[in-house]
């Protein structure tokens, strides 16, 4: 009954499933390739989730930071001939530092202004990558980015080893996200999302917290970009285009914005759905566009949010019969969250 014991079973099972997934597919390179890519996107989506989902700031420059991570790695390894892991670390540092500088300025704006500001910023980043040919090779793109260098005896020369490498990073990201969300900081971010003024009156330094979130979010985007560059080994300016931001946003929204498992569910679903609708490639937005809009109207918390409120409804019906003491911690949390959301809606109206 208790969700905590449920979680103790479900999470290891999911991890085991991910670990043995390649075996189940009999090492089908195509499936592993798509799966690895979707793991990489998930990391980026987590960054967006922390910022847009938990803190309420919709950043439309996310693909720009993704591209900064990818291009930093690409330029450092291809042009500067740097050691892979050193370049990898530096790529993350570069993205975060740019994120910090941008964040200090961008976060002075709020709501619509922030969205428009980051939208324009994303476009500037894209244009710079596209036009600065001496550094980024422009439309030709960067070719020949090396695969991750060996760590001791472990080599990363095939799809399978890359899959596990990305999986390790993804698990780390999920762990970090879990720790953040269930800490006081996580609560603080949600408080900022629900009402920034209120958060400020109870003594939260909103700017400091927002900046932390923004830098973390760009860090995740950079990590995702660097992994993408080393996995696909070719990057063009298109990865910084606004469409990528919209893609990430779709993954996040379908899965559930502001939920911990949302990015995983949404990304897996949409990436595989896109694979099945291959011949629709250009027209897939004909389906995903309306889905995005309808979800926001009817299920603003996506699939995960919808399912969890369904469970909650069933549970609350059950708990009317049994004692109320046995309510899990998460259920309580959800109630709190739900209340705050409806408070917000009242305020908006």
């Amino acid at each position: 009954m208790s969700t905590i014991s449920n979680r103790k079973i479900v999470i290891p099972v999911l991890i085991l499933l991910a670990v043995f997934f390649p075996l189940m597919t009999q090492n089908n390179t195509y499936i592993i390739h798509v799966m690895t890519l979707s793991f990489i996107w998930m990391i980026g989506v987590y960054g967006l989730n922390l910022l847009a989902g938990y803190t309420g700031y919709l950043s439309l420059a996310h693909a720009g930071f993704f591209a900064i991570g990818a291009y930093s790695l690409g330029i450092l390894t291809v042009k500067a001939q740097m050691n892979f892991w050193l370049a990898f670390l530096l790529a993350l540092v570069i993205t975060s530092v740019i994120g910090l500088i941008v964040g200090i300025i961008a976060l002075r704006t709020k709501e619509h202004f922030f969205a428009i500001y980051t939208l324009c910023l994303g476009y500037i980043l894209y244009l710079v990558i596209d036009k600065w040919e001496s550094l980024t090779e422009g439309v030709r793109g960067l070719i020949g980015i090396p695969a991750p260098a060996n760590i001791g005896p472990i080599k990363f020369d095939n799809e399978l080893s890359n899959y596990y490498l990305v999986l390790v990073f993804l698990l780390l990201v999920v762990l970090v996200m879990y720790r953040i969300i269930h800490s006081l900081s996580g609560r603080t971010y949600i408080a900022i999302r629900n009402s920034e003024d209120l958060a400020q009156t109870i003594g939260i330094s909103t700017m400091k917290n927002k900046l932390t979130v923004f830098v973390l979010s760009t860090f995740f985007a950079g990590l995702s970009g660097a992994l993408y560059a080393s996995f696909v080994r070719f990057i063009g300016p298109d990865i910084g285009a606004i469409q990528i931001t919209f893609d990430l946003l779709t993954y996040l929204l379908v899965g559930g914005i502001g939920t911990l498992t949302g990015p995983i569910v949404g990304t897996l679903l949409i990436v595989w759905l896109s694979q099945f609708l291959q011949d629709l490639q250009d027209q897939r937005m004909l389906i995903f566009g309306p889905i995005l809009t309808l979800l926001v109207i009817f299920y603003p918390r996506g699939i995960v949010g919808g399912v969890s409120s369904l469970f909650q409804m069933i549970r609350s019906k059950g708990s009317q019969k049994s004692t109320t003491v046995s309510k899990g911690r998460t259920a309580k949390e959800m109630v709190i969250e739900k209340n705050t959301i409806s408070d917000k809606q009242v305020k908006e109206g």
Binding site: F246, L249, M285, G289, L292, L294, P300
Partner: peptide
């Protein structure tokens, strides 16, 4: 009545649809 972030995302959805 929804939080402001929803309008923006919905508008982006329409944009993607109309372009496709």
């Amino acid at each position: 009545e929804a939080p402001p972030i929803h309008d923006k995302i919905a508008a982006i959805g329409i944009l993607l649809f109309l372009e496709a």
